[in-house]
């Protein structure tokens, strides 16, 4: 992850601490869901790409205002469910057969056991396990797929080091424009965020 280095005025003595301060971006605080919705629309229209809204709960309409593409999560979950379905069928068909296989990483043989004259490959009796594994695989994928695509879990993030940002999980709404955005300019972006009705705009250090 590259970060944008602030341009330090040339008159500053080189080698001072302020030289090496990298900023993550600018943080703008809003008070209501309505405010952030209007602001987000304008940030998108201004052409920013590396920016985000952070809210204590999902604000209705914000996805559209930000222009977020629909996630591919449902497609992943569908194929995970399909995998569970096939895996459950193969597992049951094999364990009730007299075959041999290495699918369990070791050589294993089936265990055909005749009971009540039921056929070994009795698909109706396999349905409950097929159903349960379909659900299990799909559910695990929806949670872990969501976390992975969100880049979570992570132990730290520049925003989490910011004191003002602590209210993002309480009652305030934030827009962050990251310094790596091609349109990011320290002063111009700050003025832009202030013009959107932010109650506060501050720098977030990396």
């Amino acid at each position: 992850m590259t970060t944008f280095e602030t341009s330090v005025p040339a008159i500053e003595p080189t080698g001072s601490l302020s030289d090496s301060v990298k900023i993550h971006g600018l943080l703008a605080e809003f008070e209501t869901p309505g405010d952030i919705l209007k602001a987000a629309e304008q940030v998108r229209q201004a052409g920013y790409r590396w920016w985000d809204c952070c809210t204590p709960f999902p604000v209705h309409g914000l996805d559209r205002a930000m222009g977020i593409k629909p996630t591919i999560l449902p497609i992943m979950v569908f194929f995970a469910g399909l995998t569970g379905l096939i895996a459950a069928f193969v597992l049951q068909a094999f364990t009730n057969s007299s075959g041999m296989s290495v699918w369990a990483m070791v050589w294993v043989t089936g265990y055909p056991y005749l009971i009540s004259g039921k056929p070994l490959l009795s698909i109706p009796a396999f349905i409950p396990v097929i159903f349960e594994l379909t659900i299990l695989f799909a559910a695990l994928t929806s949670v872990f797929g969501m976390l992975t695509m969100n880049g979570l879990p992570r132990l730290n993030h520049p925003l989490l080091g910011n004191d003002r940002f602590r209210r993002a999980t309480d009652d305030r709404f934030y827009i962050v424009i990251e310094a790596r955005d091609p349109k990011f300019f320290r002063t111009r972006t700050e003025a832009f965020l202030e013009s959107l009705g932010a109650v506060a705009v501050e720098e977030v250090q990396d």
């Binding site: 930000m66 929806s142 949670v143 969501m146 879990p153």
Partner: peptide
């Protein structure tokens, strides 16, 4: 909390995952 910070890009997938669950 897994580093959750309320990002709306995260909320978008989160809500979808919750609906799927």
């Amino acid at each position: 909390a897994l580093g959750w910070r309320g990002s709306n890009r995260h909320w978008h997938r989160y809500e979808r995952a919750y609906l799927l669950l």
